[in-house]
Design a protein around this nucleic acid. Sequence first.
DNA 1: ATTAGCACTCTGAATAACAGAGTGCTAACA
DNA 2: TGTTAGCACTCTGTTATTCAGAGTGCTAAT
Lengths: 350, 350
Amino acid sequence: MNVTDSERRRNNILEAIVEAYLETASPVGSELVSRKMRKQLSSATIRNVMGELEEAGLVEQPHTSAGRVPTDRGYRLYVDQLLEAVELSAEELQQMLASVHPNELELKQLFQRVGEVLAEQSHQATVILEPTVKHSRVKQIELLPVGVRKLLCVLVGQETLVVSHVIEVEQPISREEALSLAHFLTSELTGLPIQELLTSLEGRLSEVDASLADLARRSLAILQTVLATEPEERLLLEGTLYLVEQPEFRKNPNKTHQLLRQLELRQALMAKMREELGSPRTCVRIGREINIEGLEACSYILAPFGVRQAVLGGIGVLGPKRMDYRRTRALVEGAADLLSDVLTQWELNG
Amino acid sequence: MNVTDSERRRNNILEAIVEAYLETASPVGSELVSRKMRKQLSSATIRNVMGELEEAGLVEQPHTSAGRVPTDRGYRLYVDQLLEAVELSAEELQQMLASVHPNELELKQLFQRVGEVLAEQSHQATVILEPTVKHSRVKQIELLPVGVRKLLCVLVGQETLVVSHVIEVEQPISREEALSLAHFLTSELTGLPIQELLTSLEGRLSEVDASLADLARRSLAILQTVLATEPEERLLLEGTLYLVEQPEFRKNPNKTHQLLRQLELRQALMAKMREELGSPRTCVRIGREINIEGLEACSYILAPFGVRQAVLGGIGVLGPKRMDYRRTRALVEGAADLLSDVLTQWELNG
DNA sequence: ATTAGCACTCTGAATAACAGAGTGCTAACA
DNA sequence: TGTTAGCACTCTGTTATTCAGAGTGCTAAT
């Protein structure tokens, strides 16, 4: 038996172990694997190979004389090398599509609905990294007085993402004044990356006519407030309940609490995921790879969505390490495609 | 010993039982109560009275020969008759105030911050029923094109609550057209209750000049979409984690899941709470009184906030029945007052 | 009316016994 | 040399048993 053959066999057995474990959630023994492989090999042989797998750090035993459980590295190999891509079933696709009524939907509600459906289909938690206007470029800026000293500020990005905030200004401001400030801002800043607006505007302050100096100063103050009000990033979470109900958490309140704490804080998870979106591919992170305390027992699958080349946000599923990677990945990618389509449509209409 | 005396004694003992139970979370025995009352009465006497209390349905035993636990009716009597009002300590008030930076704050963020602080102070979950523009009257309506067929619709209520939504319209619309539609809507509808806008506008359609009929029709369509997009009501939730970590849930995953399910659905809780806000007083609901499956082990304290006479929303704490009602009530009312103040200020500036 | 004393009850923790599942090793086999 | 049957061994999770502790209700004394 040559090297490749023996390697292939090891992989088959690892695959069987992983898949059995995904189903049963309890350590899998040699007998079960043997049956799963239609007795091509006896349980004794399987045991030998399992020893090798353990040696290689791909599986482990919770204790002597228990079955094997895949390690993070085991899952990793399974995902990278043993998992062929599958398409979403027609029915699942249908379900997903049914969740969208694009014409009467606020973008945020769209995300929420798709998130809910994805959570329900996968029976796991959904995370959505919302597109934020801060990663976009200025297309339009509007200012509307909605009270003596209150100003509604609207910032439209190039993908027609819109945010609006009500802020308080020091001086009462008239409709006309507001209009001219907005005009000034729009004409000065169109096309610039929103994250760098403040520095851009400050740079221009010096070049500007003396007659406009006051205008510029006031605009700057307003913009500053708006950008401070708008959060850097937003993470939507749906279906945490599914996650908590998984057997790995049912019995272990401490684990559950740690998990919930992380989900409530969000910060760490958000940063991590934004980072992942740097690459425009679906990514899978398993257990410790996530490198967040409290999520050791979890994996996530995250896919970016956007318009044309630009990645605007990401949608993913957070579940127990013991998740159905094949199906979940298909679901996540389906959802991401759906969102990309809607956003593209949205932009065309904008 | 006359009737009043014996009644007073019973109440004292009930109070001692409740307070001991709040501290220890385990059934309280006669000996402990006797000690709590500085041995004014022996444990044997306490036992007799406890028998009466049980007879009266105010306390119960988890099993023969365990201590007593207050029933819902026991808590109710305790809250209604034995609980004097207390003020917030200076320090707590300070903490609360520190959570607010009113000048640079979006209203929603304000609620969130106050909610977080309240959750942290009380070590329980906070619920906030957000003010919704739907319960207000029209002050101003604005329409701004933010794309060929996209319209930003701004609805300002009398308390200067603002909502804005982006909707898609069938026909491309110019800035001037949008302006005139908005003008038309504002002039027609100012002062009307927003919830009844559609009927009002429909009523007026008939009275309007033929020359304006098209204007009116288009406005109506837009308004319809906006009102459909804006949700009836919103419930903010903070600090569920605190709640889940309480001893009554720690050991009981099923209870925990039921609880989390209710909190995820929100619907039932929201309806119930909106109902409570009919009366402009702080309200306390205990266990079964809430009448929502999954919240039997919880109580909530809810206080309305608003501007002048008008109740705009409510803030409350949801915790285990075994909560410190005295302190929690003070905290909740403190938070509600704080919000009322900020909103009043907000309105004055608007 | 109150209380000391006591027999009784129930829980929760600790311990032991045990079936079940799975392993690693050895020796036989193809 | 790779595979397999067989077996002794190990570890877990469950069930049964015991036992101390806490608390009660009742009775009789104060």
